[in-house]
């Protein structure tokens, strides 16, 4: 799925979206019409994903959810470390390596996050942020079904993130898919809390998410998050 998807995305983003180009009035969202369509496609997909996430929260007890969250968090720390080094955050990069070493061994393959308790903070970095730190402009805003909001820069970043994902090279396809599936459900379940707040706060959900996303990416690149 990865390779095909990447190719399609790259074509769409850098082919200029010739077919969908609209005379958008908003300079930060020139493809608003296209994006709003994709947003409603995503809402449609979510009618399946959301109940699964709610079921996950209802069936899986809290301690187990913590263990699952920690496990995937540990998987992500390797790439977070690389991105910290690429951004020149040497101290944070080493701290992330320390996290992986501690949590993978003492923390039983990452299911316990002892590193956080020892004061090695969990970070959040991705390749889109690294590109941003290097001075790459965000480019136009997009909303992708199943992926969510991404600027052109962050879409490219996401493709690289996917390639760098430890699960990408897993030979055992069944196990890989099971892990990916669980991670997706866990990720969606995480958003359930924020969703009720969003519903209360937003006048137009599409617009609110877009503005929040664009601002939060700026903050994340400057490490103000």
């Amino acid at each position: 799925m990865g390779r095909f998807f990447s190719a399609v995305l790259l074509c769409v983003v850098f082919g200029g979206l010739a077919g969908c180009a609209t005379t958008g009035s908003n300079p930060k969202d020139p493809y608003e019409k296209f994006n709003r369509t994709m947003f409603s496609v995503n809402e449609g997909l979510d009618t399946v994903a959301k109940p699964i996430a709610q079921g996950y929260n209802a069936v899986v007890p809290m301690p187990l959810r913590v263990v699952i969250g920690n496990f995937f968090g540990n998987l992500g720390d390797v790439w977070i470390s690389v991105n910290n080094f690429l951004q020149g955050n040497i101290e944070k990069g080493f701290s992330d390596i320390g996290r992986v070493l501690i949590n993978t061994t003492v923390g039983f393959c990452g299911i316990f996050d002892f590193a956080s308790e020892m004061g090695l903070e969990k970070h959040s970095e991705d390749f889109g942020q690294t590109l941003g730190k290097w001075g790459v402009e965000p480019g136009p805003y997009f909303f992708w079904p199943a992926i969510g909001p991404r600027t052109a820069r962050d879409t490219l970043g996401w493709v690289v993130d996917m390639r760098a994902d430890p699960l990408y090279d897993m030979r055992d396809v069944a196990a890989r898919n099971a892990l990916r599936g669980t991670r997706m459900v866990e990720g969606r379940a995480r958003l359930l809390q924020a969703e009720s707040v969003l519903d209360a706060a937003a006048f137009d959900k599409y617009e609110y998410i877009r503005d929040l996303y664009l601002r939060s990416r700026e903050a994340a690149i400057k490490d103000e998050d």
Binding site: A201, D204, Y208, D211, L212, R215, S216, A219, E224, D225
Partner: peptide, 13 residues
């Protein structure tokens, strides 16, 4: 929240 002001997020709207 995460570096984004909930108040100024309304500004454009």
């Amino acid at each position: 929240v995460a570096g984004v002001s909930l108040v100024s997020n309304y500004r454009d709207t």
